[in-house]
Amino acid sequence: MTLATNVKNDPTRRDFLYVTTAAVGAVGAAAAVWPLIDQMNPDATVKALAVIEADLSAIEVGQSVTFKWRGQPIFIRHRTAAEIETAKAVPLEDMIDPQTDAERVIAGHEQWLVMVGICTHLGCVPLGQKPDDLKGDFNGWFCPCHGSHYDSAGRIRKGPAPKNLLVPPYEFMSDTLVKIG
């Protein structure tokens, strides 16, 4: 009885218990809440497709193929020598979003152009992948929605789009296998 009275009147011991318990409770609450929030983050099936491997062996020179990456179209074009020449020769002052051809490809693999096929204006998918598609004034890609023209390096040259077609992170696993993402 006497011990209890002592303890009750001693503020430090009482407060220590309350503070400790509250702290432990807060840690528990945070640990319990985190899964409820994290479950909205991309799940394992989505993350599994965050990185894809594209096999380039079947793509002939002058041919374009569309892959799917993170739900978006990826334009991969096996450029001809002429297309590469033309792309390299364009002076930077002529471009709306200046970027050299070298900045948009990987050294040693310049014939491969890998881009996200979404117009940087308002998100339509530009034409130019198929041989009979309109290619626009610069022989690259043309977006029919509002008339953006992209050149043979996927750079915006005419029209309302502000930026060049986005180049995703990618690397070559071999000469014919590229890992995107």
């Binding site: 899964p35 994290d38 479950q39 394992a44």
Partner: peptide, 25 residues
């Protein structure tokens, strides 16, 4: 309910999807 699909073709699989793929599902 954010992950479950109430259709007889997908209900069973959606519950397994929650258990296997959703973070902390």
């Amino acid at each position: 309910a954010m992950h479950y699909v109430p259709n007889i073709e997908m209900a069973f699989d959606s519950v397994e999807h929650i258990r296997r793929n959703v973070n902390y599902g």
